[in-house]
């Protein structure tokens, strides 16, 4: 961690997310190796890579949930603690016990606990905001439903609503489309596009390569190291896919048209995609 640089001094403020030299290891195996990553504000970005590539770990390290052995992370130039209020998080759905005795509205309200502060209970205003967020994800009719009685796609939408009430500037979503049906997928993607159009930065761990070009405008390809990053149109190439996924790339139908000038667009934080 470069201490100082002025506690107030911003480091790389032009990026919504700036990651430098990040290395994470569980026990002794490095799971992320020397990650340099820059994501400009206002993009809808996908993070792709094979199972075990470290996608979830990258998000957790960025959020301070796992401690990196090296490197630093900045949000809009600020350190994590200073930027915390500007960050929204949708964890993998399987990360909690859905048999917890509570209802959908209560879970969404949890997104406001940090802002409420100590000793204050969520009141009517908090309730109204949570209801509005549920309506944003099309779940207003399920507010009083026990979370154990929601389907997988509905649970996912409750989690997204909980992140929406955080009213963040940058959102991390870990596989929000895993196990949801086509209708829910459309609802979620429309919502994420709206967030992006409102100037938010949205970073999504994504597993379905066939929809990358349709859904996203920024792409990070990860396999322990960063393979490539940049606007989807430049980065989504057969060569990069092969380098990320190895031989499995044959399985992907939506291969980009044969790249004329390939140049494996690596490590390029081309600013301002839009």
């Amino acid at each position: 961690m470069p201490q100082g640089a002025g506690t107030d001094g911003l480091h790389e403020p032009q990026f919504a997310l700036h990651v430098e030299d990040l290395t994470v290891s569980y026990h002794t195996n490095p799971v992320l190796w020397d990650i340099d990553l820059d994501i400009p504000p206002g993009v809808l970005a996908a993070v792709v890579g094979p199972n075990g590539a470290g996608k979830s770990t990258l998000i957790k390290a960025a959020l301070g949930l796992v401690r990196p052995v090296a490197g630093h992370v900045r949000y809009f130039g600020q350190g994590y603690a200073a930027a915390r209020r500007r960050i929204g998080y949708v964890p993998q759905r399987s990360s909690v016990d859905w048999d917890f005795p509570t209802d959908a509205l209560d879970v969404v309200t949890m997104g406001l606990y940090g802002k409420l502060g100590w000793f204050r209970r969520p009141g009517r205003a908090a309730r109204a905001r949570a209801l509005a967020a549920l309506a944003d994800v099309g779940m207003q009719d399920y507010a009083a439903r026990q979370i154990s009685q929601l389907s997988g796609g509905q649970q996912q939408r409750v989690f997204i609503a909980r992140a929406l009430v955080q009213d963040a500037d940058i959102y991390f979503l870990d596989e929000p489309l895993a196990g949801v049906d086509a209708t829910t997928e459309r609802t979620i993607m429309a919502l994420l596009r709206r967030l992006r159009d409102a100037g938010k930065t949205v970073i999504v761990v994504h597993h379905d390569l066939s929809t990358v070009r349709r859904y996203f405008d920024w792409l990070v390809m990860l396999n322990v190291r960063i393979i490539a990053q940049g606007p989807v149109s430049e980065v989504y190439t057969a060569e990069n896919l092969r380098r990320t996924y190895g031989g499995q790339v044959a399985l992907i139908e939506d291969l980009p048209p044969a790249p004329g000038a390939e140049g494996p667009t690596a490590e390029g934080g081309q600013d301002g995609p839009r």
Binding site: V96, D97, M110, W118
Partner: peptide, 22 residues
Amino acid sequence: AAFWKEFKLVSFDPDFARVQGL
């Protein structure tokens, strides 16, 4: 009683609690 909502969130989703600064 005093830390009700904090204990609830930590019991349900500790990662999310940490992201919120608890």
